[in-house]
Design a protein around this nucleic acid. Structure first.
Lengths: 115, 115
DNA sequence: ATATTGATCAACCAAGAGGTTGATCAATGA
DNA sequence: TCATTGATCAACCTCTTGGTTGATCAATAT
């Protein structure tokens, strides 16, 4: 799989408040589906779908124990996304710093012309 | 606007390869719409729409110069998203470390029982 | 003056996302 | 044994998304 598609899935999964809330809840520890669904004003089915999205993004792992499905976080894709974003930000800000430098230089030069 | 909605827009905007490519191109400097659209195998209109998505996410700023529209990066929302992700990752990994510690302790205890 | 270029707007379309309800199935409890 | 619980599957609905084409409009070039 292309790393781009990977990043797509991760960011898409994260770009939903319900799913982010689920992840946040999971950071407190392994939780079963019904328990995860409880705080939300939507059907169990809807939450189940959200979980599947998180699962295909590999942000979450499922373990079956009897009839219960226990979910746990697997933060690796998150780390990858973070790496990508951080690299981008670095590029951008360095570029902006250069521009900033140029503008300052211009300002300095202009100072003698029209005070 | 709730910061959650803010984060939504940012992550949604980033969760598309075309839009990420546009941002990457913009990291090389201010660019006009037609130029941004050139590498892509889609209509100018389609790219124009992608740009609007980036714009409403405040990841990009538009400046009109004659008939041309010049786009520049505004990385602040990116930084915010990064902050959120980093905070989450910190929570998660710290929790996982605790689990890891427990597992190690269990292993150590088991070592005397069944070698 | 007129043609061309840069870009958006408007209408449309197919596919996907997020939600619903109802059925099903396996595991547990009475 | 039989009812209940935990969860998914299947079908359906509505709204959004990503794309198209054609029209429009302002700015530039010939």
């Amino acid at each position: 799989m292309t790393p781009d598609a990977h990043l797509d899935r991760t960011l898409t999964a994260l770009a939903d408040p319900t799913r982010r809330a689920i992840l946040q809840r999971l950071s407190l520890g392994e939780t079963r589906v019904t328990e995860l669904a409880r705080p939300f004003d939507m059907s169990l089915n809807a939450v189940s779908k959200h979980i599947r999205v998180l699962e295909t993004a590999r942000l979450v792992r499922r373990r079956k124990a009897g009839r219960e499905h226990l979910l746990t976080l697997t933060p690796q894709p998150m780390t990858e996304a973070l790496a990508w974003m951080d690299a981008q930000r670095a590029l951008w800000t360095s570029r902006l710093d250069v521009l900033d430098g140029l503008l300052r230089a211009q300002d300095d030069a202009a100072e003698g012309d029209a005070p």
